[in-house]
Amino acid sequence: MPSIVLWPITGSWQFLLQALWTTIVLSVLSMVLAFAIGVVVGALRTYGGRVLDLALGFYVDSMRAIPVLVVLVWTFFAFPLVIGHSLNVLTAGVIGLGVHLGAYMAETIRAGLTSVRRGQMWAALALGMSRIQAIRTIILPQALIRMLPALGSLFVFAVKDSAIASVIAVPELLRQTQVVAGNSFRPFELYTAAMLAYFLLCFPIARGVDRIYRRLAHLGSS
């Protein structure tokens, strides 16, 4: 087996570190967008009546059918033609990833909301709260605590899917790794380093969320 050298990595370390930062930003922003979409869609599906449930179910199931790659490419190339305005790669990346992940987030949140006991809603309404107040102050917080493990694994998805944004040239970690690998002709060291970087990002997230959940679980059990 040929030798392994480190200079391709160390030589471009600032470049790659910048790329790692972009990956983190991309993951966090898409997660935030997905969460916003997920709360609205999940709550509307749970409390909004049958018609809304079916209509939004269409969005959720469609995102289960269409690959992230396709959503990203469409968002960057086709969507600007609809709105008459071009998008920069990072924006397109966040929107594409966020809208796709939002469907999974909505399902998670819906499961969390329905897992809270009916009596909690009754108790909140009995105090004179409106449904929206009850959902906001009583049901949703409990549901979120219960959903922490699932939210953690969705965040891991967000980080992994961020790598797909490389196909629309977002300067995240995979893309920049390809650039450096192309320049230095040492793919092994660089791609392996990239694998390690993603592993070190994702593996602790899942574990960390589990730990936090165990400490908070009693706040979510009704």
């Binding site: 009596g119 009754w122 009583i138 009693h218 009704s222």
Partner: peptide
């Protein structure tokens, strides 16, 4: 009957 206190 089940108290229904808000656990969080």
């Amino acid at each position: 009957q089940n108290f229904e206190l808000f656990p969080h």
